[in-house]
Amino acid sequence: MNKLLNRRQILRGILLSTAIGGTVLASRRYIGPVRDIYDLTDSLNYNLHNFLLSNQPLVREFDKADVSVNFPTSGTVLPKDDDYQRFLGNDFADWSLSIDGLVENSLSLSLADLKNMKAQTQTTLHTCDEGWSAIGEWTGVPLASLLTLAGLKPGAKYIVFHCMDTFGSNQQRYYESIDLFSANHPQTILAYGLNGESLPVKNGAPLRLRVETQIGYKHAKYVGRVEVVDSLQNIGSGRGGWWEDYDHAPWYAGL
């Protein structure tokens, strides 16, 4: 009568640990091996959110009248890098975006090339992991259409954004990455316009990523090169982004 657990409780325990264990195992369908508790959480978030978003719903759009006129910034606001300064001095006339890696055709697209492509405009809520938020009307090219143009090779899994700004205490160029699922979301665009004008330098001119299903630090600014890869192991220290590598930030940032 004073047994700690009776048979029914043991049975329940087995059922519940199976459920939890199953969830953990299901989480292994993820960017790589789960190395620590951060990766475990990251993979749980990633799998739950991919399940919630499986039919790629659109993020809510806001009223254009509500845009934040002076759109706030985080991270670099003016890259001091020589090449960037040169591009800026020429108003990005001789700048070009390169798309390479696991693609059939490597591309080099000027700002004019990008502006000649079918544009998409969306008014969305931007949120920073620090807690602030702002509404912006972004204009750009859907990432999916650029990837279609380049043609993905078999094995392509992640899109890496190499940026032109040297960032942080370790003075490395900023970089970020997302998976193909987020890259193919209809509102994931490479934006060159904000609130009806050219993208300001402080917000990432000439081109920045908008991945609306994820938060601020994923939205790489000053993008110069888009690389398609099959693994993130050889990008930076292998966690997929500057904050991920040096600040333990979650790679999957839908939250």
Partner: peptide, 26 residues
Amino acid sequence: GLTMSNSVTTAWPFLFDLFGGRQSAR
């Protein structure tokens, strides 16, 4: 907490309405 998640509110935008917006939820 979930209302502060971009992807959760993409799947369940009614959360914005329930709490009066992203900042209200925060």
